[in-house]
């Protein structure tokens, strides 16, 4: 079941198109990664969902009804451009934000003390925000974002500014929130975190949604017809033998006794057709299906997409 749906959203700024007819559907209870290179339009999309910017066309639905301003106030939103009032004390400020989200003073105070204890930061309560480091302030912001227990959480680049230990802590908290029933959308460049916690992703490049789906489906798509061979022998003979049957995507020859090559078989060619061909010209050490990392998928998808759009442009000329 989907909680949020974005339908054909476009947004044009003065001299560039931030989003071009983007659609996506976010399943209830998922952790949804919004990926893409810098300037792809991720933050614009998140701002449109949060009613900070209005789309030129298209619509956003929450639970099958158009998303309203009042819905937005119940979302837990951690913006990319996030800050706190510098002169205010941490505890007081956290209570202030919690009350704006509709919690009573006492309720906010109880929950905040629980969170502060959970993160082991009780002694920050009376400090002024300007005394905190950037990472410390981020923790406080994270707490204020999730404090009112929203069903839908949106984090824009939540891991930026965190050291690996705290990034891990944050990951665990995001997983815990999901287990408690919340749906989490977050944008990131941090592909390792995507692999670890996301179950669905959308890859946005140059204002377009170029890849969408569950992480398992995406990986399957990018691993089909892909194999990795480790061998010893003549690389050029192998290349010659594979001509017309497979494309060599990647080669490494650090160790001449154990060269590696990643292949993508052409359509209609099966692994069992390839193995004898390879076996004839080199000594196979191993032959296995290749599962690319999300990082590789990201780079490949973006590069393929850029190639297509640039050839489109060339064709237009």
């Amino acid at each position: 079941m989907e909680i949020l749906r974005v339908e054909n959203v476009s947004k044009q700024f003065a001299n560039h198109k931030a989003l071009d007819n983007v659609s996506l559907s976010i399943p209830q209870g998922s952790i949804y990664g919004l990926l893409g290179p810098n300037g792809a339009g991720k933050t614009t999309l998140i701002r449109i969902i949060n009613h900070i910017t209005a789309p030129d066309s298209g619509q956003v639905f929450l639970d099958q009804h158009p998303l309203t301003a009042d819905d937005v106030y119940s979302i837990g939103y951690l913006p990319e451009e996030r800050g706190l009032y510098k002169k205010m004390r941490v505890g007081e400020q956290a209570i202030f934000f919690a009350r704006l989200k509709g919690l009573s003073h006492s309720e906010a105070s109880t929950r905040l003390h629980q969170w502060f204890a959970h993160f082991g930061i009780e002694d920050w309560w009376g400090k002024k925000v300007e005394e905190l480091s950037k990472g410390m302030a981020q923790k406080v912001q994270f707490i204020t974002t999730v404090l009112h227990r929203p069903r839908l959480l949106i984090f824009d680049e939540p891991f930026s500014g965190f050291d690996p230990i705290n990034a891990n802590l944050l990951k665990d908290e995001i997983l815990r929130l999901r287990d408690e029933g919340a749906t989490v959308i977050f944008s990131t460049h941090n592909m390792a975190s995507v692999e670890e916690i996301c179950d669905h992703i959308t890859l946005i490049n140059k204002a377009h949604n170029i890849l969408s789906g569950s992480v398992a489906d995406v990986r399957r798509k990018y691993s089909s017809q892909r194999y990795r061979i480790v061998y010893s022998g003549d690389a050029s003979r192998l290349a010659e033998a594979l001509l017309g049957k497979a494309v060599i995507l990647d080669e490494s020859a650090d160790d001449p006794q154990a060269r590696a090559a990643t292949l993508r078989l052409d359509n209609g060619v099966a692994a069992r057709d390839i193995i004898p061909v390879v076996n004839d010209c080199v000594d196979i050490r191993s032959f296995a299906e290749y599962a690319p990392s999300m990082n590789e998928i990201f780079i490949q998808a973006v590069n393929d997409n850029n190639l297509i759009t640039s050839t489109d442009k060339n064709n237009e000329i």
């Binding site: 949060n50 900070i52 301003a69 937005v72 106030y73 979302i75 939103y77 951690l78 913006p79 451009e81 996030r82 800050g83 706190l84 009032y85 510098k86 934000f97 704006l100 989200k101 912001q141 204020t144």
Partner: peptide
């Protein structure tokens, strides 16, 4: 300059 605004306008008009 503090970048508090975006946090604020997700809670209040």
């Amino acid at each position: 300059t503090n970048r508090v605004l975006e946090l604020m306008v997700s809670s209040i008009k």
